[in-house]
């Protein structure tokens, strides 16, 4: 077990523990803040996989964008912070059965598949090649996504605008 294994298990533990808190927290603000550590752990895992750009995008979009949006939503909504979220268990037996079947299926698949093990070197940087692929091979999808986001933005601005404003 070398240093990178230890770091991997550290990030994996951060991700799993904080994700568990997100699901189980009684206080919605706690849930929102534990999500921060989940996102952070996932981005750490991306770094270990050699996907530096994706890791940074994960931090930028999820922590810098979505999480802050979520926190704003939680804090600005009237009295939502003091509401107890229902986190009890209902219908335990069917849930355990379904999860058991699903887990068995996944583990069975994991062991029966012949994984294509690729001993290739982890790329030093992925930014340049990602950029090139985005504007050559996937340019249509890239542009369509851009238009979709623009439409969403205009829609949000239209909805947020008060009637009196011109």
């Amino acid at each position: 077990m070398n240093l990178y294994d230890i770091i991997f298990y550290l990030f994996a533990a951060i991700t799993i523990v904080s994700a568990f808190i997100v699901v189980n927290a009684k206080n919605i603000v706690y849930a929102a803040f534990s999500l921060l550590f989940t996102f952070f752990g996932v981005s750490g895992l991306y770094v270990l996989l050699g996907a530096d750009f994706i890791a940074i995008v994960q931090v930028m979009v999820y922590i810098g964008g979505i999480l802050v949006l979520l926190l704003f939503g939680v804090m600005l909504t009237h009295k939502i912070t003091s509401v107890d979220i229902k986190a009890g268990s209902v219908q335990t037996i069917p849930a355990v059965i379904i999860i058991g079947i699903f887990a068995a299926l996944l583990i069975g698949l994991m062991y029966s598949t012949h994984w294509a093990v690729n001993p290739a070197e982890i790329p030093v940087t992925t930014t340049k090649s990602l950029g090139k692929t985005l504007v050559t091979e996937y340019v249509l999808i890239f542009e369509l996504l851009g238009i979709l986001l623009l439409v969403a933005m205009i829609g949000a601005a239209t909805i947020a605008r008060r009637d009196g404003d011109k």
Binding site: I63, L67, L71, T125
Partner: peptide, 25 residues
């Protein structure tokens, strides 16, 4: 010396925002 340099700097400021919101709340 990671190639993502300045992009990383822009991204980690998200932690500051989360911390400020946390402290304020």
């Amino acid at each position: 010396n990671a190639e993502v340099g300045i992009f990383y700097i822009l991204a980690v400021s998200g932690f500051v925002v989360a911390g400020i919101l946390m402290g304020g709340w």
